[in-house]
Design a protein around this nucleic acid. Structure first.
Lengths: 342, 342
DNA sequence: GCCTCGTTTGCACACGTGTGCATAATACTG
DNA sequence: CAGTATTATGCACACGTGTGCAAACGAGGC
């Protein structure tokens, strides 16, 4: 059986409460006995029961992380950042993937509640408002990352997607492109809208038209969607000379779609991504994209949540807070001067 | 505050033990009162405390998953498989990334013990034997996936890497290649050795020599390593006409390295990967690789562990078990007939 | 040597849930 | 109707840890 503080108490001849205090470093206990107890604990390979502690203290030292999918490298990197910050403060992560499935979201929310997670970070742009409300009502401190329903939550971390998208678009305009299309992902809620907004804004300020058929949405994040739906844009009567893709995953698919259609990137058409996932440096040609500080987003989200946790006992209500991070344009080789019209 | 079974007891005028039984579906409780209690519980939005339950039952309904890194798409897909199976059986996941860092591994092991995880799945090929021993001594049921130290553990899931590597190599030999190099990842322990073994075996059975300089190892899994170290192989006096890469991540980097060196894949040189991660279909050219059933590996690992958990109370000791899964060769366009010697 | 004060430890209860056992309520048998 | 079998419920304790409070201990001052 696993050793408990009672076992240690028996062996050292003190009460279990003394052991508890000694191990927690309570100054009430004399240095001599504290040391004696700690040594005994080490020898007996004692490890406290998280369940018992959590039951008593009402704190689990666990942060819930809800992400739409684990196998999306964008989210993986954010999670990586979260874990760095969490582990630094002695917190553990409870990661769950919603997979855009409401039933699954329901189960996740329930599990978070049952485990009395100390707080929750939502990274799933499509997370259902109903589930969000449930979490809020339960009293969880919540930090949302790039989330569409952010108006309901008080603490959020944003990457400035509007600005990023403007920079990407400006880059293409500067290269002489005038017929630029946008390929979005309808499942990405606010994120795709922000990027679309930035795109439109920059086009407008350059006095360039954006015909309705130049804005197209797919329903998923895999390269497959990008490849399949690139046909739609390429087969338009007036095909674009550049495509601004919602993110790198789609852009990677679009690159292949173009190649299949016999188009040379970037000579015949320019393609841009967004996020700078690791693979975007290895496509052919390497992808021009917007380098989003994914890891920082994760660590900032975790730090904000931890701040919230450690200051709430004071009873003072935190001011709503919105942290906006900026990335940088990363010009590689999938963009070039607009092809001359014949 | 959160509602407890005592609150429900008060409201329904029964004792808290009756509530406990009613909610657990204990047939001791009459149908009428059980229904009444369940309804009250639903109205009061009752959710059991995982901590309390786990403390009392000594079962956490949580599986620990140790993975070397989350942002490696290969592991992500395995984790995805694990989660599918776990959630089906009402288990939750406790995921932690070791990052090849012993200090981190130590913390992870400790956390798993403190949380009294019901079992552990180790997917980190470089996981330290010391930590593994500690987990074993603690009494965790453990399932290892492709792990180097599998001899110490009784239950394991393997992909038949030796066979896969032979098939890949055979494919290249059939295409007329005679000078074939192997690029491994020294951090991947047994996995890279198995693949190297298969490679050598097939070369030998074809009567082809493998000069020592044709076997090269890098120390990491990112495409960057593949790109950087491809130079070494390409600059040999007798450069190979084909490179068998440890996995897709490295192969993706090698593809870029070849392009940089002015080589055309597959006309000048053939490249193969391993794993079939999602991006391998979108490289240029699309990567010939070995399609490993990643998701199945995950679900099988989880199922094996769950079987272990549900049968151990009988006291009967399980026979050691090793499940070997097979994948299939996936020929795409990064391999072609060996270039003619001039 | 008595009182006071500060330090160190133990007692007892609490957290929320599960369960063996005793007891109360009901049904059944003769 | 008494006695017994059956069913339904409650009591009390347990899981491992943390903590307010009382008690024991020792030291110092007069």
């Amino acid at each position: 059986m696993t050793t408990t503080i009672k076992d240690i108490a028996k062996r050292t001849g003190v009460s279990h409460s003394t052991v508890s205090r000694a191990l927690r470093g309570d100054p009430l206990i004399s240095f001599a006995t504290a040391k004696r107890i700690q040594q005994a604990a080490a020898e007996m390979a004692y490890l406290p029961s998280a369940a018992a502690r959590s039951l008593k203290t009402n704190r689990s030292q666990v942060l819930g992380v809800i992400v739409s999918s684990i196998d999306d490298p964008f989210f993986s990197e954010i999670v990586f950042g979260i874990e760095e910050a969490a582990q630094e403060s002695g917190y553990r992560l409870f990661i769950a993937a919603s997979q855009h499935d409401p039933a699954r979201e329901q189960k996740i929310v329930q599990a978070m509640m049952e485990h009395r997670t100390d707080g929750v970070i939502i990274c799933s742009s499509s997370f259902s408002p109903d589930q969000g409300r449930q979490l809020l009502e339960y009293g969880f401190p919540i930090v949302v990352v790039n989330h569409q329903g952010a108006e309901n939550f008080h603490y959020s971390i944003f990457h400035d997607d509007v600005d990023g998208s403007r920079q990407i678009t400006r880059h293409l305009i500067d290269l002489g492109h005038r017929k630029i299309a946008y390929l979005g992902n309808s499942l990405s809620g606010r994120t795709t809208l922000d990027r679309l907004t930035g795109f439109k804004a920059e086009m407008q300020s350059a006095g360039l038209p954006v015909p309705a058929e130049y804005i197209h949405h797919v329903a998923g994040n895999s390269p497959q969607f990008g490849m399949d739906d690139s046909n739609y844009l390429l087969n338009l009567k007036q095909p674009p000379t550049a495509i601004v893709c919602f993110n790198d995953m789609l852009a990677i698919g679009v690159l292949k779609g173009c190649r299949r259609a016999g188009l040379n990137v970037p000579d015949d058409i320019s393609i841009t991504g967004f996020d700078n996932i690791i693979f975007s440096a290895y496509t052919h040609p390497p992808l021009t994209t917007f380098d989003q500080p994914k890891q920082s987003i994760g660590t900032e989200a975790a730090r904000l949540l931890l701040d919230l946790l450690h200051s709430s006992p004071d009873g003072k209500v935190f001011q709503p807070k919105e942290i906006i991070l900026k990335g940088r344009l990363l010009v590689r080789n999938s963009t070039a001067a607009s092809p001359k019209e014949h």
